[in-house]
Design a protein around this nucleic acid. Structure first.
Lengths: 125, 125
DNA sequence: GTATCATCTGGAGTCAACTCCATGTCAAGT
DNA sequence: ACTTGACATGGAGTTGACTCCAGATGATAC
């Protein structure tokens, strides 16, 4: 897979793909003729994983740590699992939080313009 | 309410509160003796609202537009409602998205280290 | 064999959203 | 009278995460 293909497939810019690799968010991709990247299936998996994690706002720093642990090998499995669990919990919390805000927004929209209910509105925000 | 009190109450830094007001995220706060801000209940409501919206990642630009519409008065109610609805929908979509990622993460954690299931894992990421 | 094209690299630039800083004012305590 | 402390302002600096650029290289089309 060329970088252009990966870029299209995951809708990540070529620059972003190179950036991710540069900072260690993705293990180094094997190079073919003339130093060009040739993404393996495993590389693709990584890109997909990282894309998901980034959508979930998991900081790049944290993901770099994860990649480092993977690189260190078998001995780090527990730490990796712990790291993922931590992030999972953060994410779950965030979702709950956003859910609450969604409900508030729904309420606000439903009652928009009704001059009544001022008291309750004040309780909300 | 002094700025320090508002800061403590909403866990927003004093700098952030001033910044929000400066860029028009919060209507101008009335000043007391010596030019010091004196937050009214209405101001507090605004701060709370804006805080929520920012937690939901609604961009500052969008919120500034909203504040502007409010300032323009009654005639803009429909536009404001539309704006809120748009943001509500984005938020709902984002939550659904995050929910999916949470499930993937849960799956990944549950099967962590089990060398089996490699095929399914590949399907996931 | 030359123009075009995709890719490469290292480094600089951009953007949103704060965050910090220097300097100044004012009221209160000693 | 003087120090202290909270607050004010305008503007500069920081951070995270990209994004863009200049210059080089190798493959492909004509």
């Amino acid at each position: 897979m060329t970088i252009a293909e990966v870029s299209r497939h995951y809708e990540l810019s070529i620059d972003t793909l190179r950036y991710y690799e540069r900072v260690g968010l993705i293990p180094p991709v094997r190079r073919g003729k003339g130093g060009m990247r040739d993404y393996s299936d495993k590389d693709m998996e990584w890109v997909g994983f990282i894309k998901c994690m980034r959508i979930a706002n998991i900081p790049i720093e944290v993901l770099i740590d994860y990649v480092k642990l993977v690189k260190e090998g078998q001995g780090t499995q527990e730490s990796r699992k712990t790291l993922l669990k931590e992030q999972r919990d953060r994410l779950a919390e965030r979702i709950a939080n956003l859910q609450e805000i969604l409900e508030k927004l729904d309420y606000k929209i439903a009652n928009y313009g009704t001059a009544v209910l001022t008291v309750e509105k004040k309780l909300l925000w």
